[in-house]
Computed example of a mutant assay.
Amino acid sequence: MVYETGNQTVDDAVRRVLDGETLDRTDGLALIAQPAEALAAGADLVRREFSDGTVDACSIVNAKAGDCAEDCGFCAQSAHFDTGIDTYGFLGPEKVLEAAKRAEADGAQRFGIVVAEKGVSKEHRPDEWNEIIEAIRLVRDETDVEVDASLGLLTEDEAEILSEEGLNHYNHNIETSRRYFPEVVGTHDFEDRLKTLRRAKAAGMELCAGVILGMGESPTDRVDAAIELQDIGVSSLPVNILNPVAGTPMGDADHAAISKSEVIKTIAVYRLLHPHSRVRLTGGREVNLAPDEQHLPFEAGADGMLTGDYLTTEGQDPGDDIEIVERAGLEPNRAVNDFDPEEVKAKHRDPATDTAVGTATSNATSELDD
């Protein structure tokens, strides 16, 4: 196989990854200092060697919005900040199922149930806990998508129950490096997040854990975050780019504190450090990358995306996302939910079609008022 990019650091790293070696922090720091073009070429080769040539799409629903007691500096849902978002309690199992069916129709392979709180509590909020379990069962039994969830901190018992109920991936982002984390969050610490990830993995769930780029972190922080995730073992690594929300401590900027080139470089380095994981481009891509640039991360090692709306902001049309995937020379993944990409694109040419699921602002809040 030809894998020469002309950059010795990148070429040596690619050769070692293809030979089965795991790159370390020293490698990551050397790589992230290399030019974006060489990194993208090397990472794309590694992706082609180890993946199936598809981009895996997931969608989410904001199943409980706002009034979160945590103070994450990027988050519109924190009760510490005045961001003007709609807030509501848990939507209920049937509404979550409706969102899952919309995601299924839009080609998602995975569907994530997300709640805004430090952590679900089987002990302190048993009614809500039981509704979440029922929602998982409904999505599992009545759709073809795999069920994921992001429910905050977990106890060992809660993790065991979620695994037994068939939860596929547990999402719990570490956001940034251990060093930089206190600059982002003050109400819990980095180790709290790692404990929950370890509990979820010990219970048998796959891990979906990643970062937010552009919060003022350094390239070294980006590498250190990837090494933490390497140590704990993730199968899905979501890469968000900050979408500044007015009212939050990080809301003053017009865009994330990271360039397009640095985004591409980080995606490529993450691919080289995580050759067997789905490196998933998620929130903030539409704000920080122009429409004719969004295919570039998928030519630099990314092989997953979040499609549809996000938690409190609108996302991109799923039909447009399929076209971005195809522009990068890849295909939508259809291993779990075998949909017709052409039907999705045709459906979303109709301006009356609902965008898939993530924010509950357009669909769920009106239903709550009924």
Rank of each mutant, 00 (worst) to 15 (best):
K101R: 15
A41W: 02
G112Q: 12
P35V: 00
G73D: 06
A116G: 13
V55S: 01
K101Q: 15
S78C: 11
D44H: 06
F90C: 10
A40I: 01
G42P: 04
A57W: 02
G53N: 03
K101G: 05
E98W: 05
V96Q: 00
G89R: 14
A79K: 14
D52L: 01
E49Q: 09
L97V: 07
A108L: 08
A100R: 02
I85P: 06
G42Y: 09
A105N: 13
C68S: 14
G42D: 08
F74Q: 00
T54N: 06
G89S: 14
C58V: 08
C72W: 01
D56F: 01
D44I: 00
V61H: 06
G84F: 13
A41E: 12
F81Q: 02
A38G: 01
G112A: 14
K118I: 10
V96N: 01
E70Y: 05
E94G: 03
C68Q: 06
I85Y: 08
D82I: 10
F81D: 03
G112V: 09
N62I: 10
A40M: 09
T87E: 13
P93N: 05
K95W: 05
C58S: 06
D52W: 01
C72Y: 05
A43T: 03
I60H: 02
L45I: 10
K118R: 15
K118F: 07
A38D: 08
K118C: 05
F74L: 04
V55H: 03
G66D: 11
A40P: 03
T54A: 04
T87Y: 10
F74I: 02
F90N: 05
E117C: 15
G112H: 11
G84V: 13
Q34N: 06
K101D: 04
S59T: 14
E104V: 11
D44E: 13
E49R: 10
A57Y: 04
A103S: 14
E37Q: 06
I85A: 11
A36H: 03
E37L: 07
S78Y: 05
V114R: 03
R47H: 01
K64E: 09
G42M: 09
T87D: 10
D82R: 15
G73M: 06
S51A: 10
F90S: 09
C75P: 09
A99S: 14
E98I: 05
E117Y: 08
A36T: 04
L91C: 09
Q109S: 09
F90I: 09
C58N: 13
E49H: 12
A57K: 03
A69S: 15
A40H: 01
F111V: 07
F50T: 07
T54V: 00
Q77M: 14
K101C: 08
A57R: 04
